[in-house]
Write a protein that binds this DNA or RNA. Sequence first.
RNA 1: UCCCCGAUAGCUCAGCGGUAGAGCGGGUGGCUGUUAACCACUAGGCCGCAGGUUCGAAUCCUGCUCGGGGAGCCA
Length: 484
Amino acid sequence: MRKGRACARCTPWCSRGSSMAERDLPRGRIVDILARGEPGTAVRVEGWVRTRRDSKGVTFLELNDGSCLANLQAVVDAASPVASAAAAASTGSSLVASGRLVASQGQGQRVELVPAALTLLQAAPPDYPLQKKRHSFEFLRSIAHLRVRSNTFGAVARVRNALFYATHRFFQERGFIFLQAPIITASDAEGAGEMFRVTTLDLERLAREAGALDWHADFFGRKAGLTVSGQLEAEVYALAFHDTYTFGPTFRAENSNTTRHAAEFWMIEPEIAFADLADNRALAEAFIKTVIGQTRETCAEDYAFFEQRIEPGLLAKLDGLLNAPFETITYSEAIGLLEAAGEPFEFPVAWGHDLQSEHERYLAEKKIGRPVFVIDYPKDIKAFYMRMNDDGRTVAAMDLLVPGLGEIIGGSQREERLEPLRARMAALRLPQEEYDWYLDLRRYGTVPHAGFGVGFERLLMYVTGMQNIRDVIPFPRTPGHVEF
RNA sequence: UCCCCGAUAGCUCAGCGGUAGAGCGGGUGGCUGUUAACCACUAGGCCGCAGGUUCGAAUCCUGCUCGGGGAGCCA
């Protein structure tokens, strides 16, 4: 209770325009009102005006509280005591409206609200940037603090939330232990990407003074940075708990300027013990299908919006993914398919070279037409920790390629044998002393294990049809951009 | 980081050497229930910044800044 005169269930400001009975009403969420509200029921809604339409005798307000995509229509007769408040309720205004639900006389909504009380908390001025018209995503990016009030970004936020929840639920229901991997780490030699430096050194002073840096004087006594992956720590947990996963923010200081890269993103990294690459693939496929299937159910209205406005064919694409097994081909087979394709690729196709974006797109979109695992890559183009295959020249890696996006998952079976791992690290000149704890996992009770990483935002892009990662992160961080 | 493209009204864009335009949005008025409402009127501009060419530049040239797309890196 913030004011003595206000009742316990009431916001203090609503006493300006509402009777005691109305103030006693519990707040109704618009999603519930639209789904289950019965005519005759008294409700109170708190939200923002999306748009107002006036006729001679009646004003319509579209109210949104973020609980769902759809708006609740409030109908205010010209003779109503709240008519003047309704007339001032411009697009973007905040208000509290109390009244009874009635069956709608018009098309497009089952019930609507006839407010007996309408408290305009603030009438938004006419320069409210998010007017009732189409805006480009580029413009909306410049007002990230307001764009979440738009249909598209509201839908993205709700699906993002549902996907986050579905991810934890998937692993929790299977007994995985959630590892909160460290954000600050000294490990940067995985080749996963450039690290952001974490330091308490006085950089301005150091810039003025010539001389070599003494990292021992820094906070941690050595170079430290923001994590680029929680995988190595996840292996620790897998070798204690059998199944584990990390799901947290991940940072890459690469100067990447694309629709698929951000400097700060969220990554899901499961790690499973007593498991090989086939187990890993099965887990990845089950994960993708389960979380997409669940969010399809919980966010049906938002998905319908994405189908209609963002990517026509989206629902058929997702249904196709849910209903067919993922394909699996080896890297060598992929090279064969690309060589036989007869496509004018810009980059040459040759065994030993990594697959380019155009190659991945051809495989996922044209040749296979659905998600496909590419496995068993040449060892020289993959990370040191991947398990050597018996042929001695490929490793047990897997990339999941999806149409329209490319690589969405990267993973592998890990090299669990001490000597092959040490030999690989030596060949790559990795400082073994820094990985002693990692090697210990191979010394004490090692077991075959595997895992993969999912770019959470890339998955979100795939399921929503949004084509730019900057539009599926609330406040995206990319080179030169750290606003909001 | 590289390669393309762009920058004109609040937003989306047209104009491409000779007086600054449209649609949407905003404002005002009208309209017996609208829902991308509709109709009429209206306000709104250092044409990204700085140089240059020209009698004359939003328009052509150069540099810079910012934005977008593609590539690489990768999730």
